[in-house]
Design a protein around this nucleic acid. Sequence first.
DNA 1: TTGACATTCAACCAAAAGGTTGATTTATTC
DNA 2: GAATAAATCAACCTTTTGGTTGAATGTCAA
Lengths: 141, 141
Amino acid sequence: MEKAAPSVAFIEPGIDADEAMLDRVFFALSDPVRRTILSRLDEGELLVSEIAAPFEISLQAVSRHIQVLVRAGLVRQERTGRISRCRLDAGPIYAAAVWLNRYSRYWQDQFNLLAVALEDLAPKRPRRAKRRRRQGRPTSK
Amino acid sequence: MEKAAPSVAFIEPGIDADEAMLDRVFFALSDPVRRTILSRLDEGELLVSEIAAPFEISLQAVSRHIQVLVRAGLVRQERTGRISRCRLDAGPIYAAAVWLNRYSRYWQDQFNLLAVALEDLAPKRPRRAKRRRRQGRPTSK
DNA sequence: TTGACATTCAACCAAAAGGTTGATTTATTC
DNA sequence: GAATAAATCAACCTTTTGGTTGAATGTCAA
């Protein structure tokens, strides 16, 4: 609550944050497995094995997806002993959102819709049952 | 109900828009050349050759970058004769922004900053000198 | 008609992505 | 100490990406 995401500090809106970082963030977000991981971490910390469980791919593959997220700054890992807790860091997402907002004038009038969606997600509202488990085998990309 | 951007129509905020489309959009955004192309198209329509001119890579390479943007729905090409006008379509960017806002509660209190930046970019508002603090945090790379 | 121009197509290549399986490292537990 | 467990590392494979160069396509203009 009062932890206003310290990692946000170095992201100066309008200053055009590190391009390479944006590369990594957008790339990390371009995979459905990784987006699913972020969504799950949004609900709380998880171990690597817990993250991997629902997926059909190997734990090693999931581990590497997590590394991609870590390199993008979207996930922090804290290893204690043999286990590694993963938690979300939304700072880079904010950076990405700032970049996208460069184009927001195109849907300016729809912006309030966005604000509404935001409000939906924000407080202590029970999270909508959006249980999609669409992590099968996308041959896409 | 102004049709501000027709391509926005099929993007239902909160409904979890086509995952594959998000794949393509985020992937398209993950390359600095493509982001630069979008930025330039933001200022107006351009021919493929005009887009390619400032880059050091071949025109063919740029043409393929544009194809990536087209497949992501971010650029529309209208070919008349031998020339092909490219213009931005910000609809998918909106979709991406909606997805990112799933995490906006992490920087809720910074959201108004974003709104300010947004306002800065929008019409003819005089720039507001709102400086924020800066704590170094070299987590990158 | 000829030729230049704008763009795309095609073939090729090196590097990266994303998956696999099989060690390896490091803690925990019996 | 030995076995088990969590996670990563390493080697390997296939597909995709992103660049190249050299046609091919289609249009304008002399």
